[in-house]
Deep mutational scan, measured.
Amino acid sequence: FKEKSRGVLREWYAHNPYPSPREKRELAEATGLTTTQVSNWFKNRRQRDR
């Protein structure tokens, strides 16, 4: 994950830790990652924050 991608994901996570499938697609396009990578990032981040 590039620093820029992580920044976008972290910013989004601060507002909404549970993005919808459509939001995940938009995030994937914005970061250049796949929707699966975006989903996993959020899942792992939520797990880490428990």
Rank of each mutant, 00 (worst) to 15 (best):
R46F: 03
S20Y: 02
Y13V: 02
T31F: 02
R22L: 15
S5I: 15
K4F: 11
E3Y: 11
R22A: 14
W41P: 01
R50W: 09
V8H: 07
P17F: 02
V8M: 12
W41H: 03
D49V: 02
E23F: 01
T35D: 09
L9S: 01
R22W: 14
L33E: 06
N16M: 00
S39F: 03
P21Q: 14
R10P: 06
N44C: 12
D49L: 00
E11W: 00
T35G: 10
S5N: 13
D49T: 05
T31Y: 00
T35L: 09
E26G: 08
E26I: 01
L9V: 02
R22Y: 14
E29C: 01
R10K: 10
F42W: 00
A14N: 08
G7F: 13
L33I: 06
Q47G: 12
V38K: 00
H15W: 14
H15P: 01
E3N: 11
N16R: 03
P19Q: 00
T31D: 00
S39I: 03
A14V: 12
K2M: 13
E29Y: 03
V8I: 15
G32K: 04
A28C: 09
L27W: 02
Q37E: 08
W12S: 06
D49E: 11
Q47W: 15
G7V: 14
T34C: 08
E26L: 05
R22V: 15
Y13Q: 00
K24G: 10
T35C: 13
H15S: 14
E23R: 03
P17E: 07
K4M: 09
L27T: 01
F1L: 07
L9P: 00
N44Y: 04
L9R: 00
D49W: 01
R48W: 06
S39A: 10
A14C: 04
G32Y: 05
E29L: 02
E11M: 04
R25Y: 14
Y13A: 05
V8Y: 11
P17T: 05
Y18C: 11
S20P: 05
E29Q: 06
R48H: 14
K4H: 13
T34N: 15
K2D: 12
R50G: 12
A28P: 01
E26T: 03
Y13H: 01
R25W: 12
P21N: 05
K24C: 14
H15I: 13
A30Q: 11
L33H: 07
T35R: 10
V8W: 04
R25L: 14
P21W: 02
T35A: 13
G7S: 14
H15Y: 10
R50Y: 10
S20V: 09
R45E: 15
S20F: 05
R22C: 14
S39K: 08
K43L: 06
V38W: 02
W41L: 02
E26H: 04
K4Q: 10
R50E: 11
S20H: 02
F42Q: 02
K2F: 11
K43A: 14
R46S: 06
P17Q: 13
R48A: 12
S39Q: 06
N16W: 00
R6Y: 15
A30L: 10
R25V: 15
N16F: 03
R45D: 04
N44F: 02
K2S: 14
G32R: 07
N44R: 14
F42S: 02
E26Q: 04
T35P: 15
Q47N: 15
D49P: 02
Q47L: 11
Y13D: 04
L33G: 02
Y18H: 08
W41G: 02
R45S: 10
K24N: 12
N44E: 12
R45A: 11
L33K: 09
F1D: 12
E3M: 13
Q47S: 10
T34R: 05
K4N: 14
R22G: 14
L33P: 00
T36A: 07
N44S: 08
V38I: 10
A28K: 00
S20M: 11
R45G: 04
S20E: 11
E26S: 06
R45M: 09
T31G: 05
S39H: 13
H15N: 15
A30T: 13
P17N: 12
K43D: 12
W41T: 01
R10V: 14
W41S: 03
Q37Y: 07
R6P: 08
K43N: 13
G32C: 07
R22H: 15
T34W: 00
K2V: 08
N44V: 05
P17W: 04
R25I: 10
W41A: 05
K2P: 06
Y13W: 04
N16A: 09
A28W: 04
P17G: 05
E26N: 01
Q37G: 06
K2N: 15
V38C: 01
A28F: 00
K4R: 08
K24W: 08
E29G: 05
K4T: 14
L9N: 05
L27V: 09
F42I: 02
H15Q: 11
L9Q: 01
V8S: 07
L27G: 02
K4D: 13
W41E: 03
K24S: 13
G32L: 05
A30N: 13
N16H: 01
A28T: 08
S5W: 08
N40S: 06
R10E: 15
R46C: 05
S20G: 10
V38T: 03
